[in-house]
Structures are given as structure tokens and as C-alpha cells.
Design a protein around this nucleic acid. Structure first.
Lengths: 241, 241, 241, 241
DNA sequence: CATGAATGAGTGTTCATTCAT
DNA sequence: TATGAATGAACACTCATTCAT
């Protein structure tokens, strides 16, 4: 098992690394995609170590050897899957926010979006993390994806601070790391470990903790009638399954 | 032959199930402990999958075969290590809080304590999590340990709510899961992934986010002396089964 | 369909056996030559077993599959290369000797010629030998090439015997096998194993051992002032680098 | 396939390189020997590349995995076999000569001895040579063994020269390389390639070519009594860089 | 003819586990 | 108890060869 070049960069160059450097034909591209998809599915189902290369090719309805027409190793295939994961997460982290919305609504919106992507990618995230200690390449991937969101959050916090809505004394980076971690971790327990949660309650609670945590004023009604301490008779929408 | 140890705890009974069920001699106990310790060290260094049984015995300066005098399998050894981990975490989760302290101070204290234990056990926690998907036994261990803290936190939140200091509309369980996850996740990134953080800053930021998040009044000051200790003599109602 | 090439030589017929038996087009012949050349280069560089078909085609700048348009197998390609080798060696073994020259000079001349061809073909000879045990076809090739020279030498020895210059008691065939082997083996060590030798010294020493060995009188001056025991002040030209 | 330490030296240190460095038990030593022997037999029968590890263990009547209890790799096993080969050849190269015998008799005796050892070890020698190009470790082994004999021969030639029996002008090293090669090569063709030869004829012819080649006087008779040193006083001008 | 994707049998190596001593 | 040799199932990876286009 050699890690000839696994610094996580130069992805374009690396993709063309096969025997004779020639780019893939259409058919080749299709086969390759099939394999990446099959690999992802298997990894999600059984984890990386537990997945056999033969299982991947079986699922892709290809011969065992075909796997190595497209990947140098099982690790390499994971790397490929991870690239897709990163891309997807990147998209998600970029996706627009309601522009003129109130701070709390923005937080809620982005949290909702995050929970949504994470639900779909939780298993792969976990796989990547699992492999991290053995291969720094994947440690990097994890941190990179995490950074995508944390940076975004930090920027948001700073903006709120600038706008005078959030506590200016807060260290935005650290807070972002924590708030991002809060949602991510919750999502892990929810989607990965199977702990049951009511989506609305989860969303509202996260939003509330977050918003209040950074010092936003949520006393009025920053959101869709979300429970605040001042609401006298507010039926708590928070529930837990 | 005979089951001397019939103290009712299932796990205890299971521990003594090796060979012909005789309880361990003094020498045996010592050897066993050596192995458990060696196993833990190796797991922490290289992860569970990457650790060879031979490496464990080598570190313990014992013969390869001796391992199976005490454990049924590598999984079994991990289970043993995990039991120690659980015990340690249990202790930590119990360890007393400053009784009459102000809410924010209590939060800070418990956060500090958590970060401290977690620093020492982060790697093993990660190992347990890594193995979770393959063996529900370990999934359980992880969730159990996590529950230790989350329940504690939930109890705390509820108490604050009862005392009128925290937002009563908040779903204590969900909030606890999130706040606990926030600190845990932050600790992972810090201690496991090696991201650098200033301990004081981390502690204060976490405390602040947490306290404000649940609706405590931290307006007084951001730090040590805060949170109008109006709490009279609130008996902590937090308990765990 | 039709066997245009019916020139009676078995090997020729066999060479054209690919695909639907059509003789090669001009382009085909060129491609084929390119492949044979590339194969020879790769075999010389890495040996037969270590050479991949893909490496041959890569060097020939052709598609992997094209290889099998011209050869039935990797072995077949080696056979093709070996045919060229045999031809070259055949030429060398035939190449004229100085007609009226003195015996020692003839020996020197043929030894020099042999060393020269061998230098260029040592690696391929070695490859053929390497493969011999697995495939009798190549054992034959090796023995055949060797026979080319040994027979020539035997004929020479017999002629010297007939002319009364060499020891008539000598078994010409055995002596030829040994003398040929002597030079061949020396050449192997020199050109293949990289042991350093001074060309002049090598040539003179070989010539001397050979000539004297078969009983020629080298006391006078059989050669280009070559050192003999009787030469009192004879500057030995023998040197070794 | 790693060549962690393959410089051919430090053999003792290397032998103890297994997992935990402990020396082998008696049983272990026996098993190991069985494997080395089985490996040698298989290598001789089928060559190195063609031999499967499974075949070696099958012949040794051991489980497949046991092979790796004693060797790091197939290469490593060959190395072990090669060490035995070297030792045997070393012994042979040392084995005493008839002390007061006539030069020709000494040559005959040592040639006979060489042919005898070579007959028993020809196949392994060939295997080692086969593998040489891929692994310098084995190239070294071959050259080393060869050197054993060539050095011995060179010493003999020099002694004959000193005693005034052999041509002092001859470059002893080069001549030794050639004469040794002559016999070795002949032995290869004989024992390896299966060319038939009469042992007596072979021995006598080799002895004669050799003796006469270095200038011994064999005029008297073909054998025992010979070699009147007629060589006057020719200062050997032969040099070697 | 040329291409390059697809095939699948084959093989070295690993390592948890067993077992005789 | 402790030892360390023995076991063998399992698996990643290779590569000559085939084949559809």
C-alpha cells in the first residue's frame, strides 16, 4: 500500500494518473462513475475497512480487476469518493442565504441547510473520519470540510458583530468552531447513532442556543413564532421522540 | 467450574468467563492488567484495527498466546478497555460541583472538568466510536458515556429553569445534547485533530455560549463574577440512573 | 485465408499466423517492427518476467491491445525477438576470418568478433537463458546460438589439428565447448555483471589461453607482438583496467 | 516487497529479525530448516518465480501461513537458501588439494572437485543468477561465490608462476576468471542444459586446456608426471590496475 | 488495423486465533 | 499460567489476455 502522492492537492493531475495518462473515453468515464458510486454506497453501508473491493465491483456489476483500471488502491477510491463529498459540502456551504432576513432567521436557515446536507452525508463523513488516523490525507479532508462551514459561520458572526447585533467581545473563530461543532455533533448523534429527535424541535433549539449564545436579541420574535422566555403561554414546540 | 463471583452484575460475570472459569490468581490479575494497559496504549497510538494482538503482547512483554488466556478476542480486549474508560468518565461526570456557586461559574467549572477528562480520554473515545458501526456493543458504550454527561447537563438546565434563571421554554434534553455536543466536538477538534486553541479563551467562549444560550443573564460581566447568584439553596435535582 | 507466404520455412509460416492469416500490410509491418524493437528494449532493461505487455506498448506508443494484433502472447513476442537475436548471432558466427593469417591471429580475430557481438547482445542472451527452464523453446534457442559458435570453433580446432598445428589428441568438440564457454562466460561477467576489464588484456589473455590450450606453438610470435614465455624483453601488452 | 536490509552481510543479526527478536526454539529451528529445504527443492525444480509459496509449505507439510513465521517474503527465503549455497560452495572452494602433487594433477583434482560441487548446486546457482537482475542482493551472492573459486585459481596460477612452472607474463586474475569461467560454463551446459558429456573426457580436456593454457609443460604425458619448467626467467610484465 | 476498457484467475502476504508443551 | 509455533481463511492487488467498437 503506497501513498505515492497523497497531499490532497493537485487533484486534477492525479485523476489522470492511470497507466498511460490518456484521458478516459466516455465509456471509461461512465464505468468510473459507476465504481465511485458503488464504492460510496458500500463504504456507507459497511465502513471502509469492512468493505471488500470485490463487493464494490460486484455492486457495480463489473469484474474485480476493473476496479484497478480506475483506482490505484482502495484508499484511492475512498479519496475519490471523498472528493465528491467535499464538493457537495462545498456547494452546501456556499448556498445562498435569505438576503434581507433577520439574524435569527438566517441562522435558522443555514442550520436547516446544514442539517439537511449532513443527513445525506453523515455516513461518509464518518467514514472519512474513521480513516483519518491512518491516513493524514483523509484527516485533511475532514478538517477541510469542517473548515468550510466554520469559516462561513465565523464570517457570519463577525458580520453580526459589525452590525451591532452580536456580542462584540466574542472570539468569532472560537465561537464559530463551537457552534458549528454543536450542530455537527448533534447531527452525528441524530443521523449516525440513530438517536431520535424531532426535526422542528432540533432546529429551533439549535437556532435559539446559537442566536442567544452569540448575544443576539431574541426576546421579541426573531423567528417563526419560536419559543422565547417571554412568551407567556407559548406552547413549546420542542419535542423529543 | 463454580461461579464464585455472583455479584449480580452481568459484566462482572462475563469477565470471568475465560478458561475453566476459575477466578484469577494474583499473578493472573497482574498479567491481565498489564495486557489491558498495553492494549489501551496501542489502541490509542494506532487505533483498533491497526493494532495487532502481537503488538499488544509485545508491549506487555508477554507471549502472543497469553493474550487469549485473558481475552476471547481482540474485540473482547477493547471491551475491557472500554469498561475502564466508562468508569473513568463516570467518575468525572459525578465529580462534585461548587455547591453554592453562581450558574455561570458552575457551567464553567463543569466545562473545565469535562475538557480535562476528555483531553486524557479523547483517543480512546475516538477508538470506541470508530468501532461502533461494526459492533453495536461499542456503539452502546459511546452513547452511554455521552449520556452520562448529557443527562447531567439536562438536569442542570432543568434546575436553572426551575430556579427561573434559564429559559423555561427550552427543551432541556435537546439543549443538553447540543451543548454537550458543542463542548465534546470542540474538544475532539482540539485534542484529536490537533487544532490549536487557547485554553482560557476556549473555556470562556464555551461558557459564554452555553450560559447565554440557555438564557442565563450574563449581562453583569463576561467572566468570573457574574450571573447574579440569586440561586438560594437550590438542591440539585440532577440525577442519573 | 490464403497462405501467400509459402516459402517453406516453418518459422516464417508461423510468424504470419495472426488474425485471419492475411500477410501484413506495410503499415502493419512497421507497427510490428516497432513492437519487436520495444519488446527487446524492455526485456533488456527489466528482464522478461518483469516486463509488462503494457510497458512494451507504451514504449512503442501503441495501445495495449495492439500487442495482440501481432503476437499471440508475451512468450511469442520474446520468440520473435529471439529470432532476431539468433539471426544476428548467426551472421557474426559466419563473418569471415582473415584467410591466410596465422592460427593465433585467427583465434584472436574470432575472439574479438565474438566479444564484440556479445557485448551488444549479452542482455538478450541472458533473457533467453532466464526463460529457458520454463519454456524449452527458449532453451533450444540458447543452445542453438551457442552451437553456432561452438561448432565453428570445433571446425577450427579440427582444421588446426589436420594442419598439424594443434594437439591431435584433443577432443575437438569438447575443447570447443570449453573454449567457447570460456570466452562466453568471461563476456557475461564483463558485460552483464559489470566486472571491469581492460579490453586488450582480455583479448590477449583469452587468445593466449586458447591457443596454447589446444597446443599451438605460440613461442615465436603468433600475433601482434603478444607476450610469450620466450620473449625475453617482451613488453606485455596485457593489462587490466 | 521491501528490501529493508539486504546487503548480504550481518547474516547473524538478520536471522533473528522475526517479530519479537527471540531466538527460535528447537522445534522452531527444525521447522525452519524444513522450510528452507523445501524451498530449495522447489526453486530447483521450478525456478524462483514459478514457485508458489503454497508449494513450498505443501512440500514441507506445513500451513501456508507458517512460511511467514520464518521469512519476511519469498525473496527472504531465497536469500536463506542462497546463504546455504554460499556456505557449501565456500567449503568446496577451501577443501584441500593434494599437497605434494604435480601441477597438472592439482589442476585436475580441483577441477574434478569443482565439477562435483557444481553438479549438486548448478540449479540453485542458476536460480540465483536468474533473480540477480531484479535484486542486487542476489547479484552479489552470485559474484561472491564465483569469486571464491576465481580467487583460488588466481592464487594457484600465481604460485605456479612463482615456482617457474607457468607463464609469468600471464595476467593471473584475468586468466583465473577465464579458466574458472571455462569450467563453470561447461558445467552449466552439462548439468543444466543437459548436454551429454563423458566425465573422464570432460575432466581430461579441461585439465589439459587449463594446464597448457597457463603454460605448463604437459609434453611428457597427458597427466601425472609433467611440467618441466622451461620458462627461463621472464619477468612478468603483466600488470593489473 | 488500432484502441483501450473489461476480465478474472492467480498470488503474496497478513493476522486473529488455536494448540501442544 | 505462560509460551510461541502453527494454522488457514481472507484480501488487496497484478497482469496477460480478450473483446467490443
Amino acid at each position: 500500500m503506497e501513498h505515492t502522492a497523497g497531499n490532497g492537492e493537485e487533484t486534477e493531475a492525479m485523476r489522470e494518473r492511470r497507466l498511460d495518462e490518456r484521458p478516459l473515453t466516455t465509456r471509461g468515464r461512465r464505468t468510473r462513475n459507476t465504481l465511485v458510486q458503488a464504492a460510496r454506497e458500500m463504504f456507507e453501508e459497511k465502513g471502509f475497512e469492512e468493505t471488500r473491493v470485490a463487493e464494490i465491483t460486484a455492486r457495480a456489476r463489473l469484474a474485480h480487476g476493473t476496479f484497478y483500471t480506475y483506482f490505484d488502491s482502495k484508499d484511492d477510491a475512498l479519496h475519490e469518493v471523498a472528493k465528491g463529498l467535499t464538493a457537495e459540502m462545498f456547494e452546501a456551504s456556499r448556498s445562498g442565504e435569505p438576503p434581507g432576513a433577520a439574524p435569527v432567521d438566517r441562522i435558522r436557515a443555514s442550520t436547516e441547510r446544514f442539517l439537511s446536507v449532513y443527513r445525506d452525508n453523515a455516513r461518509m463523513m464518518h467514514v472519512v473520519e474513521q480513516v483519518s488516523p491512518r491516513n493524514p490525507r483523509f484527516a485533511h479532508v475532514y478538517l477541510e470540510i469542517r473548515g468550510l462551514f466554520v469559516d462561513r459561520i465565523a464570517a457570519g458572526v463577525r458580520r453580526f458583530q459589525k452590525e451591532g447585533e452580536a456580542d462584540p467581545a466574542l472570539d468569532a473563530e472560537t465561537a464559530a468552531s463551537m457552534l458549528g461543532g454543536m450542530v455537527e455533533h448533534f447531527a452525528r448523534v441524530w443521523f449516525l447513532h440513530g438517536q431520535e429527535h424531532d426535526p422542528d424541535n432540533a432546529l429551533e433549539t439549535a437556532t435559539l442556543l446559537w442566536a442567544r449564545g452569540i448575544g443576539l436579541d431574541v426576546s421579541g420574535d426573531g423567528g417563526t413564532a419560536n419559543a422565547t422566555a417571554t412568551v407567556p403561554e407559548g406552547e413549546s414546540t420542542a419535542r423529543k421522540g
